[in-house]
Design a protein around this nucleic acid. Structure first.
Lengths: 107, 107
DNA sequence: CCGCATCCTAAACGATACTG
DNA sequence: CAGTATCGTTTAGGATGCGG
């Protein structure tokens, strides 16, 4: 657990710190029903730079929402998947999506 | 609707843009079952400065999650309450809170 | 293939003082 | 009471190039 937790006195804030940020929601969502390799994620999350992808994945990993499995092969292979804690968020993200979709179509 | 919507191609991002930020979740939450005056909100959201409170309320208002009612009295009185769209978010925030609480007690 | 290092910009947030 | 105004700090995010 990182430093942010210490000051996250409020559960709402705590949750937002963990799944907020520009790409975390999208990454968790695309990982919802299968693991993915780094390159697959890079293609799936349109517009993300390698730096941000790595950085975001590291944060998700530190928060134990995503796990990282390295295969010692050449060429390298790394797979990312949701942890059980991460999976608990999927229904929640699903609802967020529904709400978002509904709002977006209000025009 | 503001400019952010245009680039929010993804519903997850769209939702996060609307309820993310340091205080939005907390403000929506404290407004869940009654309207509140500016000063009440200021006391309820510990640590917020008047600048951030006003700024955040204006954004929530622009996104039609909160409505602002001004009473033309002396001294001034302004009441904030959830709109129906804002109310739709409450069950979602409730779940976020539950998840957050559960995670926070994992230590 | 899967990153890391460096530098940089922009946006969010904060401190403080003041006002109709 | 319910805000504004100004300025400063901090952090998130982006561009680009290199490396095992």
């Amino acid at each position: 657990m990182n430093k942010k937790n210490v000051i996250a006195y409020c559960p709402v804030d705590y949750a937002f710190k963990r799944i907020g940020g520009k790409y975390k929601g999208r990454i968790l969502w695309v990982l919802r029903d299968s693991c993915m390799r780094y390159g697959e994620l890079k293609r799936a999350i349109i517009g993300i730079t390698p730096k941000m992808l790595t950085q975001t994945l590291r944060e998700l990993e530190a928060d134990e929402l995503v796990s990282r499995k390295v295969y010692l092969e050449v060429p390298p292979k790394v797979e990312y998947s949701l942890t059980s804690t991460g999976e608990e968020l999927i229904p929640l993200i699903k609802q967020l999506r529904s709400w978002g979709e509904k709002q977006m179509s209000r025009n």
